[in-house]
Amino acid sequence: MHHPIAVFDAGIGSYAIVAEIHKQLPDQDILYFADRASFPYGNKGQDELLEVMQRTLRFLESYAPSAIVVASNAPSIMVLDSIRKYSATPLFGVYPPVNEALTISRSGKVGIMGVRSLIESAPLQRFVTQHASRPHDVALINASPMVELVEDGTFLFEVEKTQEAVHAFIDNILHQYPDIDTLTLSSTHLPWLRSFFEAACPSCRFLDSAESVIAGLGSGVRGTGRIQGLVTESEAHDVETLRRMLKQFGVEIPLEVVEL
């Protein structure tokens, strides 16, 4: 591969970003790394996340990437600034679109949905304070159970069960925060559930936190347009399940099992 853009997350979540990069930069080589052995990032504290990120960067830099996309909100907010000093490669993260949410909200009340470690972190609270003109109008919502529905394939293979779980989840949010009308999908797994969220709350707006990443990558580096998949696996999250999920989307790319 010729100076690929490397995109990684703890599972299938980041493939949506891979697909969008491929659409916008068709000649760009892309390295898609699904670190399923580290799933979920959402249960890891800041120190553990920092260790995982350092290890991952060392591994990906062996492929001489032109850029690395940390395709997960939790490490982007919690440790990305800290890990930049360990990498000479340009690093990009994904962040909750708080300002946009507050701008389009009719009620002025919005929510950030993300994994538990992100939602409970001091860095996210600082991020909201820095980026929202009205921080008190931004609810922080633990969506880790929704992320699980994606990573284990439930959303693809058990659609009715998924919709029931999403309905219950949204109903609980609206019970706690009845004025919320805009929610950010601040885990790269959550956009896969967008249609389920919209069915559960047709009057709500759901914003994808990854959309701004693509613009920041510029024109890329001309290559062959190849996408190479690298996967770590665990007993609970194996490569075959990932392959089945990708196939369900009509995606067939080479997946190489690796160990970090």
Rank of each mutant, 00 (worst) to 15 (best):
44 K>F: 13
159 V>N: 13
215 A>L: 15
31 L>P: 09
211 E>C: 12
101 A>H: 02
100 E>I: 11
195 S>G: 11
12 I>Y: 04
139 A>M: 05
13 G>E: 01
145 P>V: 03
48 E>C: 09
94 V>Y: 10
23 K>I: 03
5 I>W: 04
231 V>G: 01
9 D>S: 11
72 S>P: 08
185 L>D: 02
51 E>S: 14
71 A>C: 11
175 H>C: 15
161 K>C: 04
12 I>W: 02
178 P>D: 14
112 I>S: 01
192 W>R: 11
142 N>Y: 02
174 L>W: 01
116 R>W: 08
132 A>L: 10
1 M>Q: 10
178 P>K: 13
250 G>K: 03
34 A>Q: 09
230 L>F: 06
52 V>R: 02
82 S>K: 13
204 C>S: 04
113 M>P: 06
7 V>P: 11
92 F>P: 09
249 F>Y: 09
203 S>P: 00
154 T>H: 05
156 L>F: 15
103 T>I: 08
133 S>A: 11
79 V>G: 05
98 V>L: 13
31 L>D: 10
127 F>L: 05
236 A>C: 10
88 A>I: 12
155 F>A: 07
79 V>D: 08
197 F>A: 00
228 Q>D: 12
91 L>Y: 01
197 F>Q: 00
230 L>V: 11
204 C>Q: 02
129 T>V: 11
183 L>M: 09
139 A>V: 01
31 L>R: 08
112 I>R: 00
172 N>G: 07
135 P>D: 05
119 I>R: 04
228 Q>T: 15
113 M>Q: 05
151 E>T: 04
14 S>K: 06
217 L>G: 11
205 R>C: 09
122 A>L: 15
1 M>G: 12
123 P>K: 08
194 R>Y: 12
223 G>E: 13
